[in-house]
């Protein structure tokens, strides 16, 4: 057992034939371009409050002006950059911890499992919002610290998801075989369990990004982020109180759409890549 599978063989060609991948990749490219090219795309400073409040979209202000006299398009670009960064940092850190804990817990079982899972319960049961309020009000940390704190609070979800799958995986014949052949724990976890659960990571990563980005929106809503720091969540919560005005379609909608595109890009890539990295699915896509 233990079929070796080289994902690199002809990968590019197959990926390009996959509509999921193409859509996901082009969305990502589009968003990255938006971020990279933002200085050229919008001439306005997102913090400049010097324009006429609630001005409708025009040639100068593509998406009009918000309540504080700031160019919405410039805000959108700056917000996308910050939100993307926040989401990526939180998701990567959270997922990394989650994978390690989940696999270790499933593999070692017993006391390790008990301790890790009870710590996970503990973290899950404490409302993250409360800890963040504490931190934000006492220490006023930078968004990066908040991202890492959020990650350290959010790993239990993926850890438990991965653990539950790994528990099943652990008893599969090829793992048992590898074990009988004297494979060390590190070897089996690293070579077998970790890669085989890859699709879960992608889904978990996409949902972590989503969680982080949404949490950022909620925290902005609660006023816990530096109000001058632009983010998509902040923009949504800024625009919310004016939903009954005509401004909603060029102010409230664009950040929601961008957020949706962002999550979509991740999920599409995840859906696409899961087929290429899961050896047991090779038959499914090869035919």
């Amino acid at each position: 057992m233990g079929a070796r599978f080289d994902p690199a063989a002809g990968l590019g060609r197959r990926l390009l034939a996959d509509p999921w991948f193409v859509t996901g990749a082009s969305l990502s490219l589009f968003l990255v371009l938006l971020v990279v090219l933002s200085p050229w795309l919008s001439p306005h400073d997102p913090h400049d409050m010097g324009y006429a409040a609630f001005a409708p979209p025009s040639a100068d202000h593509w998406l009009g002006v918000n309540d504080g006299g700031m160019d919405i398009f410039a805000e959108l670009l700056a917000g996308l950059r910050n939100t993307l960064a926040f989401g990526l940092v939180t998701a990567s850190a959270g997922l990394a911890i989650g994978i390690l804990v989940g696999l270790a817990s499933a593999w070692f079982r017993g006391v390790v499992d008990q301790v890790l899972m009870r710590v996970a319960d503990l973290l899950l049961a404490i409302p993250a919002v409360m800890i963040l309020i504490l931190l934000a009000s006492f220490y006023r940390p930078s968004p990066w610290v908040l991202a890492l704190v959020l990650a350290s609070l959010a790993w239990p979800t993926s850890a438990r998801l991965i653990r539950s799958q790994a528990l099943g995986l652990r008893t599969r014949p090829h793992i048992a075989a590898a074990r009988q052949m004297g494979g060390s724990s590190a070897y089996i976890i690293g070579r077998h369990m970790m890669p085989e659960l890859f699709p879960l990571y992608l889904i978990a990563f996409a949902s972590k990004v989503r969680m982080a980005v949404f949490m950022e929106a909620s925290l902005s809503f609660l006023g816990l982020f530096d109000p001058t720091r632009k983010s998509l969540g902040r923009m949504i919560s800024d625009a919310l109180p004016f939903y009954y005005l005509d401004v909603w379609w060029h102010w409230l909608l664009p950040p929601i759409v961008l957020l949706t595109l962002l999550i979509m890009a991740f999920t599409f890539l995840a859906v696409s890549l899961e087929r290429f990295f899961d050896p047991r699915l090779r038959a499914a896509w090869a035919d």
Binding site: H47, D67, G68, G223, L224, P227, P241
Partner: peptide, 26 residues
């Protein structure tokens, strides 16, 4: 209701040359 008083005052003070650290707390 959240408002932008802090942002505006910060901008005004900085324009004058007073470095301002805006702190939003609960």
């Amino acid at each position: 209701a959240a408002d932008r008083d802090g942002e505006v005052i910060k901008a005004q003070l900085e324009r004058l040359g007073i470095r301002t650290d805006l702190v939003n707390l609960e």
